[in-house]
Design a protein around this nucleic acid. Structure first.
Lengths: 245, 245
DNA sequence: GACTGTCAATGGCTCGACCACTGAGCCAGT
DNA sequence: ACTGGCTCAGTGGTCGAGCCATTGACAGTC
């Protein structure tokens, strides 16, 4: 099922106008010295200056507002809320280039904490969900599959047990990128059963109710996951050429 | 500067149409059993069904796309990308109710990891930035202020030193909520100088190049920060009434 | 001086039109 | 049978004009 028979022929990426406008506005913020709290030119003005319809401007602005970069006040105007990273959304960041190493580090940060919290807050039902996920993974592996679904279900069960919607939201935003790391890791020869064993240790840690035990087990597990896939991505793609934060 | 002379008379919260439409679409996804990869009704159809203009539907969709929940393909249609947490954005989550405890936990997860990475990757310039932030905070405190700016600059300097754009993005998204915790904590009597001392220990840890030392210092610091503000928010607001994840 | 009505500025929403892209189906040429 | 070209219906992308809703300021009134 490869699309790679003709190397170098990838689909052309067509950009939408309101995306470009978002870029332009980002540029404007950076170059105009607009400070947090300052007002933007009115919509009609922006439309005129950029020679586009007001509709398109509004689409761009609505997105920026949803991301928390600007605040739109009816009858008043449009105000800058956050200047740092203006226009840079996480989904966009994750699409770009191979950020697997960074994703793995972020994943560790979040999941280690989730495991710690789960050890404190897990209910019997939570532990049941984790064990169910474990069995699912066992079955998948028994059928010669990688155990991807069971793996995902397992980590999700822990996230639920941690009872922290903010952390869950953060990790959900990286879900797709994490799925890549999952595939990468479980494709290693001999990896699935090893992963299964690691999961058992994590459950034991969470069940024990000792946060350090749970987080330590999770950390060890994710280090193994990261170890392998990292090696393979390292030599690809030249540096991104992005300035610091 | 109180608006509280007439209790119970808060400004009415006017919602924008495209926000409501986002809600409706979320509801639709939950109730229609739409699965990831499935196609939505076309824009014109949605506009007709919800009795609004296509423009408004598009605004809602554009936001959902930016958040990674749907994929819009020109000439083809609109497809569901992520079902879990559909329509729930982080900014929205953080606005709602007092989520300080959760924010503090998330903050710890991210910043402890950032400190760890900073210990490995920091340059001389990074350490310089941290010390500058420290001095800024000292000056602020010397003038009888809380040291908020210096505090923020300090933590930001560490984030930069960690060289991980994904983690930085995640923490930036919580910036506003974190600022609240900052204020809360530094308002405690005797807290600013204590915070300053903690910062010095963190710098020492990062400078030493030993990840465990840095992360441990950061964890200890954030536990102190969390300790106080937590107590005050606990007894307020009845449960949120949100179903599990 | 304090209230009040008015008005210009600005965002919110609608409508109708047209353009651009996609996939499917049909057809002629080979 | 396969290829390429053509058409067409369906669907997203953009535009422009118009009107409504809200805000803040300002002039007028008591």
């Amino acid at each position: 099922m490869g699309t790679s028979a003709y190397p170098g022929l990838r689909p052309v990426a067509r950009s939408r106008l309101y995306e470009d406008l978002g870029e332009r506005l980002s540029q404007f913020v950076r170059e105009s010295g607009l400070a947090v709290g300052d007002r933007f030119p009115p919509e009609r003005e922006l439309a005129r200056l950029l020679a586009v319809s007001r509709t398109s401007i509004r689409q761009a602005l609505v997105v920026l507002q949803a991301q928390g970069f600007v605040e739109i006040r009816h009858g008043e105007g449009i105000y800058l809320r956050r200047a740092r990273g203006f226009g840079e959304s996480l989904p966009k960041l994750l699409e770009r280039r191979r950020r697997l190493p960074e994703v793995l580090e972020a994943r560790e940060a979040l999941e280690v904490k989730l495991a710690e919290l789960a050890a404190i807050r897990r209910t019997r039902a939570d532990l049941g969900a984790m064990r169910a996920a474990l069995r699912m993974m066992e079955n998948e592996i028994g059928e010669g599959k990688l155990g991807l679904e069971g793996d995902a279900a397992f980590h999700h069960a822990i996230a639920v047990a941690a009872r922290n919607t903010v952390l869950v939201r953060l990790i959900d935003e990286m879900a797709e990128a994490i799925e890549e790391t999952r595939i990468e890791s479980l494709s290693e020869p001999g990896r699935p059963p090893r992963s299964l064993a690691a999961h058992r240790r994590i459950i034991a840690g969470i069940e024990s109710g000792i946060p350090e035990k749970a987080s330590q087990a999770m950390r060890a597990h994710l280090r193994v996951v990261a170890d392998v896939s990292l090696l393979r991505w390292q030599p690809s793609e030249p540096a991104d050429g992005e300035a610091g934060v």
